[in-house]
């Protein structure tokens, strides 16, 4: 065992999938995660599921956070989970945010998205969820 291992922040890849450019939410969340001590890799707008997963692998991210406001979440969120399966990286946790109706949240969780946050969610709730999920690192 190495001595005095520098605490390694949990790395979270944050991406906007889909075609819309509404990045207010994703930016506010990224700032809050940074302030909570996480390393946030922001990959920008209009990422395809393939791009998101490829970047997450290169960055050795433990978590992928997806944001979407275009209504394509039922197609694109499961596509990210599928791509993780294809790349044998199902240990990476996926969560999402955006305008997502209740029924869709239930369906998406069944398809392997760990958690979904809708507008109005306090930032602290997202941070608390991550801390519970990754007690060993980050903030």
């Amino acid at each position: 065992m190495p001595v005095d291992t520098a605490v390694r922040p949990v790395r979270i890849l944050v991406a906007k999938v889909g075609l819309d450019g509404h990045d207010r939410g994703v930016k506010v969340v990224a700032r809050a995660l940074r302030d909570a001590g996480y390393e946030v890799i922001y990959t920008g707008l209009r990422q395809t599921p393939e791009m998101v997963v490829d970047a997450a692998l290169q960055e050795d991210a433990q978590v992928i956070g997806l944001s979407i406001h275009s209504g394509a979440h039922m197609t694109l969120f499961p596509a990210v989970v599928q791509e993780l399966k294809r790349r044998k990286a199902t240990d990476i946790v996926v969560f999402g945010g955006g305008i997502i109706p209740e029924d869709d949240i239930v369906a998406l969780k069944k398809k392997g998205v760990a958690e979904l946050f809708t507008p109005g969610t306090p930032l602290q709730e997202i941070v608390d969820w991550l801390r519970k999920r990754f007690p060993q690192g980050g903030g």
Partner: peptide, 18 residues
């Protein structure tokens, strides 16, 4: 102070994604 960071340099290198 927090050890956190936002790393955003990949955005400009999207041409080489995949």
């Amino acid at each position: 102070f927090t050890g956190g960071a936002i790393l955003g340099d990949r955005i400009r290198m999207q041409r080489h994604a995949l």
